[in-house]
């Protein structure tokens, strides 16, 4: 039981990190950024590239090296998010929603198969693999590395919370989410704030990518597809557009999956998760913490 909860929390913290970016972008410009999961994939590959280049050095330095790599990968994916926004989404800011959604699908496709061109179709094995001492915590078997990853995830989320509630950028983001037009009149540089939102969200996804790569050991160019869907599911469960909701949704989805897997078997895990997406949209489309989502005039 407590093992299941721990497994759920662990996976859930990955989901939460990716869901945050999804939710932030949706909250601010009402765009479902389908390419968000692929940014996560990009992060994993960026980390892979750095660790491979550093070679033996990284392997010996282990966890510390991974932290450095994590930060650089976050910068890289954040920048990728910026570019994506600038190139693909900004030109369509006032276009019909359908056009933007299709563009997002195109972006996702381009990132996936662009990476396939660069890295090849076969999975890569992460040079750093986190396998560590096991400790028993309240009846659950927990590795030190797992704990470390969860701590990193929590720190990142706390950082984000501070950023949004305690800084000018965060205030501007909340203002735009409330009313973009009024924000413009109030002198907020809407474009800059949206760009920053993409940067932050993408950086978090990138971090999750590196962590997933290091933990699971294998990465491939399609790894972002499922996690993107999961992150969206998490965002919906928590209440899309809501930062705390994304975190909560990630953890809830992680738990649901852990229990679902125990109950139905691992091969049904994804079906179970997506069924929850549909269930939530049917019964509680606003999510656990969200506002109304039905269309207004």
């Amino acid at each position: 039981m407590s093992q299941l909860i721990w497994n759920g929390l662990f996976v859930g913290s990955f989901y939460a990190l990716v869901a945050l970016g999804y939710s932030m972008v949706y909250g601010i410009i009402k765009l479902l950024n389908f390419a968000h999961g692929d940014i996560y994939m990009l992060g994993a590959f960026a980390g892979f590239a750095m660790l491979t280049m550093a070679g033996a050095l990284a392997t010996s330095a282990g966890f510390l090296a991974l932290l450095v790599v994590l930060l650089i990968a976050m910068l890289a994916t954040g920048t990728a998010g910026l570019i994506l926004e600038r190139v693909a989404y900004r030109p369509l800011r006032s276009a019909p929603r359908l056009s933007v959604l299709i563009t997002a699908v195109g972006a996702s496709f381009a990132l996936e198969y662009g990476m396939r061109l660069v890295a090849g179709p076969n999975p890569e094995v992460y040079p750093v693999r986190l396998e560590g001492t096991t400790v028993h915590l309240l009846g659950a078997r927990v590795t030190v590395q797992q704990l470390a990853l969860v701590v990193i995830a929590v720190l990142l989320m706390l950082g984000l919370q501070w950023l949004i509630m305690g800084t000018g950028t965060g205030r501007a983001m909340r203002a735009i989410a409330q009313d973009p037009k009024a924000s413009l009149y109030m002198g907020i540089n809407v474009n800059a704030v949206i760009a920053r939102t993409f940067f932050i969200g993408s950086a978090l996804a990138g971090a999750a990518g590196v962590m997933a790569g290091a933990y699971y050991g294998k990465i491939d160019f399609l790894m972002g597809f499922i996690i993107g869907l999961k992150a969206f599911t998490a965002a919906v469960i928590g209440g899309i557009g809501n930062i705390k909701g994304a975190m909560l949704g990630g953890l809830v989805l992680g738990m649901l999956e852990a229990f679902g897997t125990a109950w139905l078997g691992g091969e049904w895990r994804d079906v179970f998760a997506f069924s929850f997406l549909i269930l939530f949209l049917t019964l509680r489309p606003t999510g656990l913490l969200g506002e109304r989502v039905t269309e207004r005039v």
């Binding site: 195109g106 990132l111 198969y113 662009g114």
Partner: peptide, 11 residues
């Protein structure tokens, strides 16, 4: 890859 880029460009 080209198809993905094409979607963006067309839109």
């Amino acid at each position: 890859f080209v198809f993905g880029v094409l979607l963006i460009v067309v839109m």
